[in-house]
Nucleic acid binder design. Structure first.
Length: 930
RNA sequence: GCGGACGUGGCGGAAUUGGCAGACGCGCAAGACUUAGGAUCUUGUACCGCAAGGUGUGUGGGUUCAAGUCCCACCGUCCGCACCA
């Protein structure tokens, strides 16, 4: 209620900028100037390099707010680094393969439109977006531009694939994959996400949200698991230069766990029945074989508490069991497996019912010789070995399952003495709940009395010695399936030959070009299958005329896993890149991008970098020295639900509806959500650039809040920033004559107190701005300080009465004018990275030649940073009661004296005893009275 | 459940090393200029109180001369992962 009433009072107005402030023409002028005069990159190898990179976009057709923030950040920092004298590259390109273009084309074909080929569309989108970027004043190095959909790029994507094939990093296998029935293609595990719709929770496609289905399919995989440990170790080296969020998510995703493999032995019996007794010895059926069954556990210390063994429905042993069990059991197992496997692995995981079937077989515990029943259970995943030793007493999942099937729990761990003493640790009743903490072993033969950690080590060592297992490391990370049954992607450069099998396309025949004339309407099989001329080829090995090309295309994440290397040598037609150029520019010094790529793109990119390192192409292992993850700019959506309607509206529409009596304020629900067309909560950055200018929009997205935090776009908030830009511009333009052709200061001309204060403000701004641009990236605070300086400057001009005075060497205001001149120059340079057009304009207005980006970044003068006199707070008993003005270098004694002499303290002291005084020079004085 | 982030005025946020909480901006209020203002400028604006003064950074404790900041316990919000044995 209070929310909706405050909402209706907060009127949203259409704010139009002042016509007299002609930012549009000067922005256009400077954009043209930069295009013609930008200093060539890489001209001077003696300068320190800086590689500024932002994630390249998918060319969807329009630049939206999701782009404005990262590109503004990267452009501001690139411009800053150039001013600092670095040799900077800040390239841009296009992640141009992918489903949206293909889907749009399909839609258009179905709607009967023409000229909608994904290629045509994509290239048109790119031209449009490049132009939008120019309007923002982004100083990207367009001569390095890459397009993943062009053969001159994907030739090298294919080349990397061949290198991976050579090294057995790429391989083919039949696998259960996630199939998106709507996109009609395979998704990688990382591309499947949990979707909650109404009350339903299911595994859906990260792109379209459709429920994914499992499918068995022959597909190409990249052996990223081979790199699991290196990917993990690399994370710790990145340290504080990567956000903790990304690092922990990647760590989690790799999911390293150290444990022990233990070989149980299963007695296979012919005619075994799962309905038989569950306690050993199982005697139904005839023994036919004994086979090893390896389980993986992180809690080998609980091995004496095993009361059954469970295997995953996909476990290879299941087939053998089905051949042996009696017909009733066969049917039960068969039905159970059918049911379980019809779900995706992740759906299975999200269900909470633990179910399973007894096989009638028994497994022998290698450590104590006990025979325990063997189950097939839905809660066991094909992780580790796909088999677990179940310990209901010390594992919650096993405990749940054991209750369902009335299996015993046997306690083998006791809390440590220390744990028993604590308030939560004394009572352990394994019949009621599993005790999952580590502790001291009991009922565990010779291991009894050991603590968990020691027992795990001892048991692992003994198993190893006995040849029945030993320590192992497992990962959650799976190999990366890259085959996609879609058209608009990079063809996989292999040939299938009936005689030779899979044959790689020879390097000299690259690229395998994606044909244009393909019927790409989705049928469930790869569109390239329907293109006989593409598919039919000679086997490069045996010359067989009836070989077929692979008709799948690669996951587009492959394309984007190496693009930043190509930027260093984008036009090279001979090799993927000149290693010397990569040595010059890489690793990337700063990579800016969204959190949505924390695991997908960033882990693939790191993997590719390590691979290219291994084949000797690059000499570093981590591609991005610093990763900055920016927040999302969200919008406030308004949904009106009443008897007339149930839909999203804009703020203006809501107002109109209320005025017409068609809605009441309380019918509206406001929510902060990701900007989207359907929710009408978006803002079009290009439209805002037209109305307010690029500098305003650039500054505005940075002023919204700390760049790594999500923030809400407030359509009214832009006016404050726009006003500031105008004020800054106006202040410089109208006061430029005050500092025109200043004669030098004579040695005896000194700054007055106001000038010293202004100088102090200007130089501390340099310190502040430098610190932020160097790495803290709290641009909002830099902007705030610049606003303050403009306010200070204006007040200074008024208070020093600079306007009226005559200029000349004898002008008494000359020192003040010099101070003003310096403050102007500092202000302009501090703002130049963020608002480059206005900074250029201001620089030019003050008589500057060329571009402001030819100017060096200012250095703070230490002398200006210290004031002669400072104001310090005085506390009495910890509460601020007043201030004192003291000399800058006043020591503790002087501070104490000044404090005692101050009115505030005298008044409060009033005869009371001073117990203690704390005086911190330069900070504070605290008087403690009794 | 595990992991991460966060909690400060009407709002976005500042306070980086324990040292004047609320910078800067929005909004709001009053005034100036103006034919007009949704332009521009000036002033005010954490809360309670006429005031003196008091209270105040999610809650409760603690350390300290001094805590938004450090420690302990809790509450809440958001995000990610989630039967990984």
């Amino acid at each position: 209620m209070s929310k909706s009433s405050s909402g209706s009072s907060r009127r949203q107005r259409v704010v139009e900028p002042d016509d007299a402030f002609d930012f549009a023409s000067y922005e256009a002028h400077w954009q043209k100037y930069w295009a013609e005069h930008l200093a060539p990159v890489g001209a001077d190898a003696s300068r320190k390099k800086f590689y500024a990179l932002s994630m390249f976009p998918y060319p969807s057709g329009v630049l939206h707010f999701g782009h404005a923030l990262p590109y503004t950040i990267i452009d501001a920092l690139a411009r800053y680094k150039r001013m600092c004298g670095h040799d900077v590259i800040c390239p841009m390109g296009w992640d141009a393969f992918g489903l949206p273009a293909e889907n749009a084309a399909i839609e258009a074909v179905r709607a009967g439109k023409s000229n909608v080929h994904p290629k045509t569309n994509t290239l048109a989108n790119i031209d449009h977006m490049r132009e939008q970027m120019r309007r923002f004043g982004y100083s990207f190095d367009w001569e390095r531009e890459v397009f993943t959909c062009r053969a001159d790029y994907y030739k090298w994507t294919q080349w990397i694939f061949l290198k991976m094939l050579e090294r057995n990093i790429a391989y083919r296998k039949k696998a259960r994959v996630n199939w998106c029935p709507s996109c009609k293609t395979v998704l990688a595990n990382e591309q499947v996400e949990t979707i909650v719709k109404d009350v339903d929770e299911f595994q859906g496609c990260f792109r379209c949200g459709a429920k994914v289905e499992p499918r068995e399919i022959d597909a190409w995989f990249l052996r990223i698991t081979e790199y699991a440990d290196r990917l993990l170790n690399g994370l710790s080296q990145l340290g504080k230069n990567w956000s903790e969020l990304v690092v922990s998510q990647q760590r989690n995703w790799i999911g390293r766990s150290e444990g022990v493999n233990i070989d149980f032995e299963v007695e296979l019996r012919h005619g075994a029945s799962g309905s038989g007794p569950l306690t050993p010895p199982g005697t139904d059926g005839k023994p036919v074989d004994r086979v090893p069954l390896t389980v993986f556990t992180t809690r080998a210390d609980t091995v004496f508490g095993v009361t059954y063994v469970a295997i995953a429905p996909e476990h290879p042993l299941v087939k053998r069991i089905l051949e042996l069990v009696d017909s009733r059991t066969h049917k039960r197992i068969h039905d159970f497996i059918q049911e379980t496997l019809s779900m995706t692995e992740m759906d299975r995981a999200s269900g909470d019912e633990k179910e399973g079937v007894a096989t009638g077989m028994f497994a022998v515990n290698p450590l104590n010789g006990e025979k325990v029943p063997l189950f097939i259970a839905n809660y066991v995943l094909m992780y580790g070995t796909g088999a677990v030793m179940a310990v209901p007493a010390h594992d919650e999942r096993d405990h749940d399952f054991s209750r369902e099937y009335r299996l015993p729990a046997k306690q083998v761990i006791e809390p440590t003495a220390e744990r028993k003493k604590s308030d939560t640790g004394q009572r352990v009743d394994v019949r009621r709940a599993a005790f999952t903490e580590p502790g001291i072993l009991v009922n565990s033969g010779k291991y009894s009395g050991l603590d968990s950690q020691a027992a795990i080590a001892a048991i692992a060592a003994d198993l190893k010695a006995a040849g029945k297992g030993g320590p192992v490391v497992n990962y959650k990370l799976r190999d990366w399936g890259i085959s996609r049954q879609r058209y608009w992607g990079c063809p996989i450069p292999v040939v299938h030959c009936d005689k030779c099998g899979i044959v790689p396309v020879p390097e000299r025949d690259l690229p395998v070009e994606l044909p244009d004339d393909v019927d790409f309407l989705p049928t469930g099989q790869s569109p390239l299958t329907l293109h006989p001329a593409f598919q039919k080829t000679r086997c490069p090995r045996c010359g067989n005329e009836h070989a077929r090309r692979d008709t799948d295309t690669m996951d587009t994440f492959v394309d984007s896993s190496w693009y930043w290397f190509r930027y260093t040598d984008a036009k090279n037609g001979e090799v993927i890149f000149d290693p010397a150029k990569v040595r010059r520019w890489c690793p990337v010094d700063l990579y800016v991008g969204g959190r949505e790529h924390a695991i997908l793109h960033l882990i693939y990119a790191r993997f590719f970098c390590k691979f290219l390192h291994d084949i000797g192409l690059v000499d570093h292992e981590e591609p991005f020295t610093r990763m900055f993850t920016h927040g999302l700019i969200q919008g406030e959506s308004i949904k009106v639900v009443n008897e007339h309607m149930n839909r999203y509206v804009t703020a203006d529409q809501l107002e109109a509806l209320i005025a017409q009596g068609k809605a009441r304020a309380e019918d509206a629900t406001r929510r902060i959500e990701k900007m989207s067309k359907s929710k009408l909560n978006g803002a079009d950055p290009t439209e805002l650039v037209r109305r307010f200018g690029a500098d305003t929009v650039r500054m505005c997205v940075l002023f919204l809040g700390p760049a790594e935090q999500d923030s809400v776009w407030d359509p009214n908030g832009i006016v404050g920033v726009h006003r500031f830009i105008k004020r800054w511009h106006e202040t410089i333009l109208s006061n430029a004559p005050l500092v025109e052709n200043l004669p030098p200061l004579a040695p005896d001309q000194r700054l007055g107190p106001a000038a010293k204060t202004l100088r102090h403000a200007a130089h501390s701004l340099i310190e502040k701005a430098t610190q932020e641009y160097e790495g803290r990236y709290a641009f909002n605070t830099v902007i705030a300080r610049c606003m303050e300086l403009v306010n200070d400057i204006r007040a200074f001009i008024t208070s020093e009465k600079l306007e009226g005075a005559v200029k000349g060497a004898t002008d008494p205001t000359l020192p003040a004018r010099h101070t003003l001149d310096e403050a102007f120059s500092i202000l302009n340079r501090a703002l130049a990275p963020i608002a480059p057009h206005t900074a250029e304009e201001a620089h030019r207005a003050l008589g500057g030649r060329g571009s402001i980006f030819g100017q060096p970044w200012p250095k703070a003068d230490p002398a200006a940073l210290v004031l002669d006199e400072i104001e310090l707070p005085v506390q009495v008993n910890g509460k601020v009661r007043g201030t004192i003005r003291v000399a800058r270098e006043a020591d503790a004694k002087a501070l104490e004296a000044a404090a005692l002499a101050s009115e505030a303290v005298k008044k409060l002291l009033d005869g009371k005893q001073v117990k203690k005084m704390i005086a911190v020079p330069g900070k504070i004085v605290n008087v403690v009275v009794g």
